[in-house]
């Protein structure tokens, strides 16, 4: 049981990492840092609804740290981490309130919280409150990408329902 669990977490982390790396090859036309689909979060959102809190945290943080190392963008790691912590905390609370048929909703809140964390980190690191001007754009983008990744995760949750664990 224990070994199986660890294997599952490993597979999920690997899948998230692959999605993350492939997504990093997609060029985005937006002039604002931080706007992206965040496809790797399909795995995160799925895990939030299927695994224990510390297991989700493990998947998320291993993916963020290894993802930054593999993509060679260490600065991005700080922003991802602060966004990730806030997003994870929020979603773990929301999963108690929102059932898995409204997973996309939890995902939207998660995305907006992630963007909030990123902006806070950027303001602190750059000592430039003007960065907050990006926040409205990030919220709009976060709602859209959050809904998309949430819907994808919902499909995954539905498909995996029948497998015994």
């Amino acid at each position: 049981m224990k070994a199986r669990r660890i294997a599952e977490l490993g597979v999920l982390t690997a899948a998230a990492l692959i999605i993350f790396i492939i997504e990093s090859f997609i060029p985005y036309p937006f002039p604002i840092p931080g706007i992206k689909l965040g496809l790797a979060n399909i795995i995160t959102v799925y895990a939030v609804y299927r695994y224990r809190a510390y297991e989700v945290a493990a998947i998320l943080f291993v993916r963020i740290i290894l993802g930054s190392v593999f993509s060679g963008n260490i600065t991005a790691m700080i922003y991802s981490l602060s966004g990730g912590v806030l997003c994870l905390a929020g979603m773990l609370l929301l999963r108690k309130v929102i059932d898995e048929y409204h997973l996309w909703l939890a995902s939207i809140f998660g995305a907006v919280l992630h963007n909030t964390g990123q902006i806070i980190a950027a303001v602190i690191i750059l000592q430039t409150p003007a960065i907050i001007a990006y926040y409205p754009f990030l919220i709009v983008a976060g709602c859209l990408s959050g809904a998309f990744t949430g819907l994808c995760a919902q499909i995954v949750v539905k498909r995996f329902k029948k497998t015994p664990s």
């Binding site: 963008n73 600065t75 991005a76 950027a122 750059l126 430039t128 003007a130 960065i131 001007a133 990006y134």
Partner: peptide, 11 residues
């Protein structure tokens, strides 16, 4: 909307 380079800390 400032021009921002996060890696080089430039605004």
């Amino acid at each position: 909307i400032p021009i921002v380079c996060l890696p080089n800390h430039l605004v």
